[in-house]
Amino acid sequence: MQHWLTNAQIFTGTEWLSNAHVCVADDRIVAVTTEQPSADVPQHNCHGHRLLPALIDAQIYGGGGRLFAQYPDEESLSLLAAANRKGGTAACLATIPTFHMEVILESAKAVKTYMAKGGEGILGLHLEGPFIHVEKRGAHVAEWVTVPTVQQIAEILEAADGCLKMITVAPECCSNEVLHMLQDAGVIISAGHSNASYTQAQQFSRRGVQTVTHLFNAMTPLHHRNPGIPLAVFEDANLMASVIPDGIHVDYGMIRMAKQLMGERLFFITDAVTDCHEGPYQHVLNGDHYALPNGTLSGSAISMLQAVRNGITNIGLTPDESIRMASLYPTRLVTNH
């Protein structure tokens, strides 16, 4: 059924339209116009409020008190989608950290089943690990970190059946054959939790890597003698990168610098978790972030709307650009593959 949202300030991604109207049919935007719609169609008057493009989160682990990796089922995905909507996120990549193969395959099958039933709010699966470098594991469980085999990748791809959208790996731990398999399957390869040198990172995009996971976190650091992964990312126009704008994972000044160097290649993620008091990933809310019981930083507590606010207030972005970092730029990455 068709209905209209009228009298709104609408941000198209490039400009603001005043006194504009949106036509929605079957939950899809089919028209944006400044011409008044016919009075005989259902309308909701927005009274001048702002309408923004859908916010997209490419890395989030759960919502509503149900961590997806701990409960890899459709209920977790439904609760995640509902929690996301409250924070401005229309769609996300449901993410699981390093785990054993049984949970990885269960998660892939759960996303596949959920998406086959409509997949509201879920764009696919983001597998962060277990194919990472153990020295850069962060809050990930060390015993499950492993070097990927062709057989493992084949199993995961079969279980996901097209729903594995992104995988975070340490490229220096992956063979070219494994990376080519992922490329051929249309999976976005992201470098993260990586101990790669600057020289190794300069080869990322040539090996099929398209983006980098949570820039500055869990990677070789930017140093004047050993530049690490960040400098290679700054220099490579073919690489995008996500960043967590909570002021805890990364200082806002570092994000400001990265933005000046990368422009539209940098985008926001929340890296958010939810309360979990059982299993290997027990996330405890510690003020404005989550930590493991041993105090290790394990995830953010921000929403994508808060990420946008932080971009404006703390990083110094214009409202338009901060919105694009949470919508247009991640959408380019996720929907172009």
Score class of each variant (00 low, 15 high):
residue 281 Y to R: 00
residue 117 K to Y: 03
residue 112 K to W: 02
residue 200 Q to P: 01
residue 96 I to C: 12
residue 84 N to Y: 03
residue 134 V to L: 11
residue 63 G to E: 11
residue 30 V to L: 08
residue 219 M to H: 08
residue 211 T to V: 07
residue 156 I to F: 02
residue 336 N to D: 14
residue 196 A to N: 05
residue 332 R to D: 08
residue 144 W to P: 02
residue 50 R to V: 14
residue 131 F to I: 02
residue 228 G to K: 00
residue 171 P to H: 04
residue 68 F to Q: 07
residue 229 I to S: 10
residue 331 T to F: 13
residue 103 V to A: 12
residue 219 M to K: 08
residue 289 H to I: 06
residue 1 M to H: 12
residue 138 G to H: 01
residue 130 P to V: 08
residue 212 V to F: 06
residue 82 A to N: 15
residue 111 V to Q: 01
residue 104 I to P: 00
residue 317 L to V: 14
residue 254 M to R: 09
residue 288 D to Y: 03
residue 1 M to Y: 08
residue 62 G to Q: 09
residue 227 P to A: 01
residue 245 P to V: 14
residue 315 I to A: 07
residue 56 I to K: 01
residue 311 G to R: 05
residue 221 P to V: 01
residue 126 H to I: 11
residue 183 Q to H: 13
residue 125 L to E: 00
residue 319 P to V: 03
residue 16 W to D: 10
residue 183 Q to V: 03
residue 148 P to A: 10
residue 180 H to G: 05
residue 277 H to R: 06
residue 59 Q to P: 13
residue 225 R to N: 06
residue 318 T to P: 09
residue 16 W to A: 09
residue 20 A to K: 09
residue 134 V to E: 14
residue 273 V to A: 14
residue 207 R to Q: 05
residue 292 L to R: 08
residue 326 A to P: 07
residue 245 P to H: 02
residue 81 A to T: 15
residue 2 Q to H: 07
residue 273 V to P: 13
residue 312 I to F: 02
residue 133 H to L: 07
residue 230 P to Y: 05
residue 201 A to R: 07
residue 111 V to C: 00
residue 58 A to W: 06
residue 166 M to S: 01
residue 264 E to S: 09
residue 66 R to E: 03
residue 118 G to R: 02
residue 248 I to H: 12
residue 50 R to P: 00
residue 269 I to A: 05
residue 3 H to G: 05
residue 258 A to Q: 10
residue 138 G to C: 05
residue 217 N to A: 06
residue 189 I to L: 07
residue 199 T to C: 01
residue 118 G to F: 03
residue 295 G to V: 02
residue 61 Y to R: 11
residue 18 S to H: 09
residue 308 V to M: 04
residue 313 T to K: 15
residue 26 D to S: 12
residue 86 K to I: 15
